[in-house]
Amino acid sequence: MKILIMSDSHGLTSEIIDIKNRHQDEVDLMLHCGDSELPYNCEELSGFIGVKGNCDFGSSLPNEIIEDLHGTTLYMTHGHLYNVKMSLMNLKYRAIETNAKIACYGHSHIAGAELIDGVVLVNPGSIRLPVLRRQKTYAILEMKDNLVNVTFFEVNGHIVNELTKEFSIE
């Protein structure tokens, strides 16, 4: 299973469409981790499952999503309600509460993936305002059996090799 993950697009539209068009035929699911600042039913986000970010004022999107991915649970939230700019501990605990092996979030605009206490935590970064690096990023997560591979891409589709990681989950 392959999942496109983006976050913190903050009003961008053509970039979302370009990324969606580039990958929609190769992925099974498309996620937006919040702060799109676009209406819930806009054309750009059609096909995406999304959550509400702290800048999505008046949005009817949920604060969290829990998805069953053929027996593996995925948890998604924006991250502001879990203070992810300070620590991933609260997010990790919430993921564990939901029995999630994968937790996707945004808010900090810092791209990265790590395995903490059996949970793969993925922040795709921001396609508008990246933090700690110059590349504006999104990610594709691929699951095969117990292996999870997270590949990061720049908005133009080029792979960011130094961020790409593979994890084994039970």
Results as ranks from 00 to 15, higher is better:
H80D: 04
G106H: 02
I96F: 09
Y93V: 14
H80F: 06
G112M: 04
K85V: 08
I102E: 04
L88A: 10
C104D: 00
A100D: 11
H109L: 07
H78C: 06
S108Y: 02
H107I: 01
A103C: 15
S108Q: 01
H78D: 05
A95Q: 07
H80S: 01
I96P: 02
Y93N: 13
G112F: 03
M76Q: 05
H109T: 08
I110S: 00
H78R: 02
R94G: 08
K101H: 11
G106K: 02
R94D: 05
M89A: 11
K92H: 14
A95H: 06
M86L: 13
H80W: 07
S108H: 00
M86H: 12
K101I: 11
T77P: 10
M76G: 07
I110N: 00
N83D: 15
S87T: 15
C104L: 10
S87R: 14
V84T: 08
A103R: 07
K85N: 12
H109F: 10
S87D: 14
I102A: 03
K85T: 09
A103K: 08
M89L: 15
G112S: 13
H107G: 00
M76T: 11
L88Q: 05
K101T: 06
H78L: 02
S108N: 02
L88E: 03
V84D: 01
M89I: 13
C104E: 01
G79R: 00
L88Y: 11
N83A: 12
I102V: 11
L91R: 03
N90D: 11
L81W: 01
G112N: 08
S87V: 09
S108C: 02
Y105W: 08
L88S: 07
Y82F: 13
H80M: 00
S87N: 14
I96M: 13
Y93Q: 14
K85C: 09
H107Y: 11
A95M: 07
